[in-house]
C-alpha cells in the first residue's frame, strides 16, 4: 500500500476507508467518462498495476483502444465480479449465472463479442478474456473447415500447392 505524502493525502486515505472504496474514472476513445469503484477497476490487471504504482487515479484513465459501447459492457462484467462477494455457494452460483447470461448475449452479436475480447485482452481482465475466448472456441469445436469459414466469414485463399498438402494430411488424419 502506498502511504500518503502529506496531510491531504492522509485525509483522502481516511475518506476512502470511510466510503469503503475510491472511485476511478475510465474514459473511452470517444471521450466518454465512466466512473467505477476501485474494486471494479481492479478486475483489470492493466489498471490495477497503474493504480498500485501510484498513478494518476485522480485524473482518471483514458483508454484510447476501447469505444464507449464496449467499455460499458466490460464495466458491466467488472462491476459484477469486483463489487460482489463470491464466498458462499449461492454467491458463486449467482456469479456463474451472470457469466452465462452475459456471454449468451455477446454470442448473439459476434462483432461485439470480438470487440469485448479485444478490450479484455488489452485491459488484461483474465476472467472476461477466458469467458469470451472459450465462447469462440466452442463455436469452432466440432465444425468442418467449411462450416468454420462460413461462421466467421473467412475467405478461402489457399494456393493449389497448399491444397495438395492438405489433401495429403486428410488421408492421414
Amino acid at each position: 500500500m502506498a502511504t500518503g505524502s502529506g496531510a491531504a493525502a492522509a485525509a483522502a486515505d481516511a475518506e476512502e476507508k470511510e466510503s469503503g472504496s475510491r472511485m476511478i474514472t475510465l474514459t473511452s476513445n470517444e471521450g466518454k467518462a465512466f466512473v467505477v469503484t476501485e474494486a471494479s477497476a481492479r478486475q483489470s490487471a492493466t489498471i490495477r498495476s497503474m493504480v498500485d504504482d501510484g498513478g494518476c487515479v485522480d485524473k482518471g484513465f483514458p483508454l484510447p483502444n476501447v469505444d464507449s459501447k464496449t467499455l460499458a459492457r466490460v464495466i458491466q462484467y467488472c462491476d459484477e465480479h469486483g463489487n460482489k462477494e463470491a464466498h458462499t455457494v449461492d454467491e458463486r452460483a449467482a456469479l456463474a449465472k451472470f457469466d452465462k447470461d452475459f456471454i449468451a448475449e455477446l454470442d448473439a452479436d459476434k462483432a461485439f463479442l470480438y470487440d469485448v475480447t479485444m478490450a479484455a485482452n488489452y485491459l488484461h481482465i483474465q476472467g472476461l478474456f477466458a469467458l469470451t475466448t472459450q465462447c469462440i472456441a466452442d463455436t469452432i469445436k466440432g465444425k468442418t473447415p467449411e462450416e468454420i469459414r462460413t461462421a466467421f466469414g473467412i475467405e478461402y485463399d489457399l494456393t493449389a500447392q497448399d491444397e495438395e498438402e492438405i489433401k495429403e494430411e486428410d488421408t492421414h488424419a
Binding site: Y114, A151, I154
Partner: peptide, 9 residues
C-alpha cells in the same frame, strides 16, 4: 461483422 473475426490479432 463476420470479417471482423479476421482482424483479431
Amino acid at each position: 461483422d463476420q470479417g471482423r473475426f479476421n482482424t483479431l490479432p
